[in-house]
């Protein structure tokens, strides 16, 4: 199984140098993971490195096709609390 980068990646380069298997390629419209090289960081790190630094929710999928960073996981604001957070921030 391998991780996958999908549409929405902003080509920020953060993941590329971290991959222990050099599986990540700078590409357009978005970066790509070579499935033949990615081993999910097994034997290298506890967490997949690319998905641990990626700043964009939802753009890296694990081997099961699940988003490693689902909505709300990176902003710290779950989708159902977005409106409340917004009104708090607007009151500043």
């Amino acid at each position: 199984m391998a991780h996958r980068i999908i549409d929405g990646c902003v080509n920020c380069w953060a993941c590329e140098p971290l991959c222990p298997n050099q599986a990540i390629q700078a590409a357009t419209p978005h970066f790509l993971i070579d499935p033949a090289k990615c081993n999910d960081c097994d034997g290298h790190y506890a967490d997949p490195q690319c998905a641990s630094i990626c700043p964009i929710e939802g753009v890296i999928l694990d081997g099961n096709g699940q988003a490693v960073n689902p909505p709300g996981s990176l902003t710290g604001i779950p989708p159902d609390q977005w409106a409340t957070a917004m009104s708090e921030i607007r009151a500043r």
């Binding site: 080509n11 920020c12 380069w13 140098p17 630094i53 700043p55």
Partner: peptide, 14 residues
């Protein structure tokens, strides 16, 4: 130096 290792709420990493 393109990569960044933190997220600031005032930054769009695009």
């Amino acid at each position: 130096a393109p990569a960044c290792n933190i997220q600031c709420h005032y930054c769009n990493r695009k």
